[in-house]
Amino acid sequence: MILVVDDEAAVRATIGQALAELGYRVRAAETGEQALALIREAPPQLVILDYVMPGMDGAEVARQIAAIDAALPVIFSTGHGALRALRESAGVAASVLEKPFTLAELDSLIARTLGTTPRLRPGS
């Protein structure tokens, strides 16, 4: 199961639909607080986390996720404008999904992050 955290409903829905097309089960949260509660309730395999959110931003949510489960992988999703700030606060090694993205880019990044094989066939 992959947890998608984004304050924009349309973005949550789009990422959720893409993940479902790839065969993943998906849960979604609108806020960092909701995400942390869901992680405590049923830890996901991976978190896709918006970096720019009102209230608790993605960097703070990621720090709190690490306190709950340091091994839980997080992919930050962000628009180009926030990419520099994300790299500065999260570190260069952070996995980043830059919006907009393709299904193949999402699949590839998840596979690299989880150490698995991409689910899309080449040429899909």
Results as ranks from 00 to 15, higher is better:
residue 3 L to N: 03
residue 124 S to Q: 14
residue 70 A to E: 15
residue 25 R to G: 11
residue 121 R to F: 11
residue 54 P to E: 07
residue 110 I to P: 01
residue 81 G to W: 14
residue 118 P to K: 10
residue 57 D to V: 07
residue 20 A to H: 13
residue 17 Q to V: 08
residue 106 L to P: 08
residue 71 A to H: 14
residue 38 L to N: 06
residue 9 A to G: 00
residue 112 R to D: 14
residue 8 E to G: 04
residue 57 D to A: 06
residue 97 L to F: 00
residue 102 T to H: 09
residue 56 M to Y: 06
residue 99 K to P: 10
residue 6 D to F: 03
residue 26 V to H: 08
residue 106 L to W: 10
residue 4 V to Y: 12
residue 53 M to T: 10
residue 49 L to G: 03
residue 16 G to V: 14
residue 80 H to C: 11
residue 2 I to P: 08
residue 80 H to R: 12
residue 55 G to E: 08
residue 14 T to L: 02
residue 14 T to P: 00
residue 74 V to M: 03
residue 109 L to Y: 12
residue 106 L to F: 14
residue 105 E to K: 04
residue 21 E to T: 11
residue 10 A to G: 02
residue 16 G to D: 02
residue 84 R to G: 08
residue 3 L to R: 06
residue 103 L to I: 12
residue 58 G to K: 02
residue 13 A to S: 04
residue 106 L to V: 14
residue 40 R to D: 12
residue 66 A to F: 15
residue 99 K to M: 14
residue 16 G to E: 05
residue 13 A to Y: 04
residue 15 I to A: 01
residue 63 R to V: 00
residue 69 D to R: 00
residue 102 T to K: 10
residue 86 L to F: 15
residue 97 L to I: 06
residue 72 L to F: 11
residue 88 E to T: 09
residue 66 A to C: 11
residue 64 Q to H: 13
residue 98 E to Q: 08
residue 33 E to Y: 01
residue 40 R to A: 15
residue 124 S to T: 12
residue 53 M to P: 05
residue 91 G to L: 02
residue 15 I to T: 06
residue 42 A to W: 03
residue 83 L to P: 01
residue 5 V to E: 02
residue 53 M to L: 13
residue 9 A to Y: 00
residue 121 R to G: 06
residue 15 I to M: 02
residue 47 V to P: 10
residue 17 Q to P: 01
residue 5 V to F: 01
residue 38 L to T: 08
residue 69 D to E: 03
residue 63 R to W: 03
residue 81 G to F: 13
residue 44 P to C: 01
residue 40 R to K: 14
residue 89 S to D: 00
residue 25 R to N: 12
residue 6 D to L: 04
residue 97 L to W: 02
residue 25 R to E: 09
residue 112 R to P: 12
residue 90 A to P: 07
residue 70 A to I: 14
residue 68 I to T: 09
residue 38 L to R: 04
residue 27 R to N: 13
residue 112 R to H: 14
residue 116 T to D: 08
residue 34 Q to W: 00
residue 20 A to D: 15
residue 97 L to V: 04
residue 7 D to A: 05
residue 119 R to C: 09
residue 9 A to K: 00
residue 88 E to N: 04
residue 55 G to D: 11
residue 62 A to L: 06
residue 14 T to Y: 04
residue 122 P to F: 13
residue 70 A to G: 15
residue 102 T to N: 10
residue 107 D to A: 07
residue 124 S to C: 13
residue 80 H to G: 12
residue 57 D to S: 07
residue 41 E to Y: 09
residue 58 G to S: 09
residue 109 L to E: 14
residue 124 S to G: 15
residue 53 M to C: 13
residue 19 L to P: 09
residue 64 Q to T: 09
residue 12 R to V: 07
residue 78 T to C: 09
residue 15 I to S: 00
residue 114 L to M: 15
residue 34 Q to N: 05
residue 66 A to Q: 15
residue 29 A to P: 02
residue 50 D to T: 02
residue 108 S to V: 15
residue 64 Q to L: 11
residue 116 T to Q: 04
residue 52 V to P: 02
residue 47 V to H: 11
residue 7 D to W: 07
residue 34 Q to A: 06
residue 109 L to N: 11
residue 53 M to D: 12
